[in-house]
């Protein structure tokens, strides 16, 4: 790790990161803020129940909305936040490695006494730090909004934090395989296309798996299998097991990326 590079990289990503944090936090606050009016709306759950089951699963409301936790997990973590984080990790992973190699500025970083391993490890740390920052700020704004913006509805804070930690770990794995692709690529556009393609593919499989019984098996072949916000916030998953499996996978993928980057020819 190079501390100076880490800080410089974070600074140069600060604007984009700020945008993502702002977007995620603002939307979560908005969603929490309107919760009382939805919860008070009579017949809302009946309306939801009237939808076909596959559809309900898709929008994250299998059982309707019974608590603030269900609502936040289904409406925000199951939809918008997922997309925000997907975009962030794909873009940032590509920018941190493949773009620098493609453009040639990596030459300057490697021309310092830092080894390739250290440069790659620093870049990976920048990626995961950015992801952690988005999740942390979102967690804080969710808690703040539920505490101060609305009254009469409790958010179970420990479960909410657990959901966020798991969300971070799931997206760490996505970030890590995008980073691996990025570290192995000479072409920024190809790296971006491949990362986005694989991730969207996983997402499609996930949707298909939820759609009907016949396609359920498809859901087993996607990383999003590990991401079920409603179950997570209701403590219906084995958080420790899932969490550690995700953490280890991330670590393995990042290590592989560093080794791949160390051994390959660079067109700088």
């Amino acid at each position: 790790m190079s501390g100076h590079l880490y800080v410089a990289m974070l600074k140069s990503h600060a604007k984009m990161l700020g945008g993502f944090i702002y977007g995620a936090a603002a939307y979560l606050i908005l969603i929490v803020w309107v919760y009382p009016s939805i919860a008070d709306m009579k017949g809302f759950n009946d309306m939801i129940q009237a939808l076909p089951e596959g559809m309900r699963k898709l929008v994250g409301m299998e059982n309707g909305i019974h608590s603030l936790a269900d609502y936040v997990a289904g409406e925000f973590y199951g939809l918008l936040f997922l997309i925000i984080l997907m975009i962030y990790v794909i873009l940032t992973a590509t920018r941190l490695m493949a773009r620098l190699v493609d453009q040639g500025s990596m030459a300057y970083l490697l021309a310092t006494p830092f080894s390739r391993e250290k440069i790659a490890a620093t870049q990976a740390a920048v990626l995961l730090t950015g992801l952690a920052l988005i999740v942390t700020f979102t967690t804080l704004s969710g808690i703040a909004a539920s505490e101060w913006l609305i009254s009469g509805y409790e958010l179970d804070i420990p479960s909410f934090i657990k959901l966020n930690v798991l969300t971070f770990l799931v997206f760490s794995v996505i970030a890590a395989y995008c980073f691996l692709i990025s570290a192995a690529s000479n072409d920024e556009k190809k790296a971006l296309g491949l990362s986005a393609g694989i991730t969207l593919g996983f997402y499609m499989l996930n949707l298909a798996g939820k759609l009907s019984d016949k396609t359920e098996w498809m859901g087993n072949f996607t990383i999003f299998k590990a991401y079920d916000p409603i179950k997570m916030i209701n403590n219906e998953t084995n958080a420790l097991l899932t969490g550690s499996a995700l953490g280890i996978t991330t670590l393995l993928l990042i290590t592989t990326s560093v080794i791949v980057f160390k051994k390959r020819n660079l067109p700088l």
Binding site: A8, K11, S12, K15, L100, Q103, G104, S105, A107, Y108, A111, L268
Partner: peptide
């Protein structure tokens, strides 16, 4: 070593 690459591209945003 001091190195001057043939194609000069620096980090962005600095």
């Amino acid at each position: 070593v001091g190195y001057l690459p043939g194609e000069i591209v620096f980090l962005e945003g600095m």
